[in-house]
Simulated assay, not measured.
Amino acid sequence: MRTLESLLDEGASVPVEGWDFSWFAGPPTRATEERPPWGYARRLAGRYAAARAALDVQTGGGEVVRAALTGAAEVPAVLAVTESWPPNAALARAALAPWRAEVAEVPDDAPLPFPDGRFDLVSSRHPVSVNWPELARVLAPGGTYFAQHVGVGTAADLTDFMMGPQPVGDGRSPARAVADAERVGLRVVDLREATLRMEFFDVAAVAVYLRKVIWIVPGFTVEGYRDKLAELHERIRDHGPFVAHTTRYLIECSRPDVPL
């Protein structure tokens, strides 16, 4: 087994821009995460084929949108995405350049810089926050919001190990999302949930994951959590991969074909 110091050095140095998680697959395998059964990117590709104007919110580096567009029989005539972090926005511009996508750099909780009713499809994969009034505003009558959200308690096993037991609220619950969607006049037409297994095979993988997915342990740095990472290193050495769990839900909403 590699030394703690070499793993921590690696965990602190791996680039974390974008939503490309291929580094974890190795070789060697560093971490695994079970995928939801519904195939979000494949389903999004089918919706792109039927859309005239599409917006992806909090797109990361555009990786999921690019995969969906590549698999789509046809693509929307108008394509836009938003992203709050400049390094990710730069990746999205490069990834989506073949489709001439507009990339708008806006904070995750800011108003969307588009006119009312501009898009017949709005999508998002793992948004940090969901601005339901803005989503409803930019949707055209008869339009669709199609997304995969992170659910309650995602990676709580890892959060609690690193930070001690933490309270779990309902802010990311499907029930809360349904209520918020209906409050702005959207109608939920599909809702599916899944609990999925994650395994981390070394502390470098844990460090890269926590640097990349910043809300799991807010303020995480390798140096700041060195003692807990050392403890986790020993646990993995003695007992095998660290197991955590994620929750995901697929949600599809339609805007009524009448003014909200």
Rank of each mutant, 00 (worst) to 15 (best):
A12T: 04
S6R: 14
R93D: 07
Y209W: 03
D202V: 06
R172N: 12
G11Y: 10
E5C: 01
R192A: 06
W215C: 09
G151Y: 08
F114K: 10
G26I: 11
S129C: 15
G62M: 02
A110H: 13
A80S: 02
A147E: 00
A53Y: 02
S6V: 15
E10Q: 07
E34A: 10
T82M: 06
V122H: 13
M198E: 15
A49N: 01
L210W: 03
A89E: 01
Y48G: 01
P87A: 11
L55D: 00
L229H: 03
Y209T: 10
V152Q: 04
G61A: 00
F200R: 06
A194I: 15
P37V: 10
S124W: 05
Y225N: 02
W38M: 00
R93F: 03
V168P: 03
E231F: 11
S173W: 14
R100K: 10
I251G: 01
L44D: 04
T159L: 11
T154L: 01
T159D: 07
P167C: 14
M198P: 07
E5I: 09
A72H: 09
E33V: 01
M162P: 10
A49Y: 03
D56Q: 00
R235H: 13
E182H: 13
S13N: 05
R176F: 14
V203T: 13
D56L: 05
A177Y: 14
A204N: 03
T221E: 09
D120I: 11
G164P: 12
D9S: 13
V128L: 15
A155S: 14
P127M: 13
A177I: 01
V106K: 01
G117Q: 10
E193M: 04
A136H: 10
L44E: 10
F146L: 00
L112I: 15
